[in-house]
């Protein structure tokens, strides 16, 4: 079971690198959607035995992160009709290398943490740290509002994985509440992206700095 979960978590890591390296907004959205689906399966298998609660969390994660949110974003993308290139502040290769170094450090750091015995040596904590870091990188180094939304999504994926180590202690209502918050957040951001696109015919957030009243 741990081998399966580890392989799934490696897929999550691969998708992290993919989102840092891809040049297209649509590929970025699809990558985050795939990551959401994989994380749903991680949630299903990481607890050892199958309970109703983990099944509910897994199914809702897959439907929200894998289907609903990507469709919302793709729709927003189609509506604002922007150019497909991501145009980052930091180029793809440097951000990929930063992500790789960060992931390596996350593994080293997770080894020093006083974890519960069942999580020791597993990839759960390092992957979550690396995913959070990837989310931060996407949020801060990408120019377009819509790729920043995806950075936020990836960040939340990392938090979700970290939450899986606490499922025993944390009531699953909290987990579901977080998912609902995420959906609402993305919904609001989608509307915002739409408005930015309609007002300024560009989603470049670096230009929002000049938005001052005279």
């Amino acid at each position: 079971m741990t081998a399966l979960v580890d392989s799934l978590l490696i897929l999550v890591l691969l998708l992290n690198f993919f989102s840092l390296g891809t040049t297209r907004v649509k590929a970025l959205i699809n990558g985050s959607a795939a990551q959401g689906v994989v994380i749903g399966f991680v949630a299903l298998f990481s607890q050892g035995e199958l309970t109703v609660e983990t099944a509910v969390v897994a199914v809702s994660a897959v439907t929200l992160k894998g289907i609903v949110i990507p469709r919302l974003l793709l729709r927003a993308l189609r509506d604002v009709r922007i150019r497909q290139n991501i145009e980052p502040f930091i180029d793809y290769v440097p951000s990929l290398l930063m992500g790789a170094v960060g992931s390596g450090l996350a593994i080293l750091f997770a080894n020093t943490l006083p974890l519960a015995p069942e999580h020791e040596g597993a990839l759960l904590v390092p992957t979550s740290l690396s995913t959070v870091l990837t989310g931060f990188l996407l949020l801060t180094t990408r120019r377009k509002a819509i790729s920043q939304v995806i950075g936020y999504l990836v960040l939340e994926n990392g938090v979700f994985i970290l939450g899986l180590t606490l499922v025993g202690a944390m009531p699953f209502l909290v987990e579901l509440g977080v998912l609902l918050d995420l959906l609402v957040g993305i919904f609001v951001m989608g509307i915002m992206v739409n408005h930015i696109g309609r007002e300024f015919s560009s989603l470049d957030t670096s230009r929002l700095a000049q938005l001052k009243e005279e």
Binding site: F17, G21, T23, Y92, V93, L96, L97, A100, S103, G104
Partner: peptide
């Protein structure tokens, strides 16, 4: 982009 693909391959193997 060829270079970045190959660097990504290096990163994965290093990982």
């Amino acid at each position: 982009r060829v270079a970045s693909l190959l660097i990504a391959a290096c990163v994965l193997a290093g990982f």
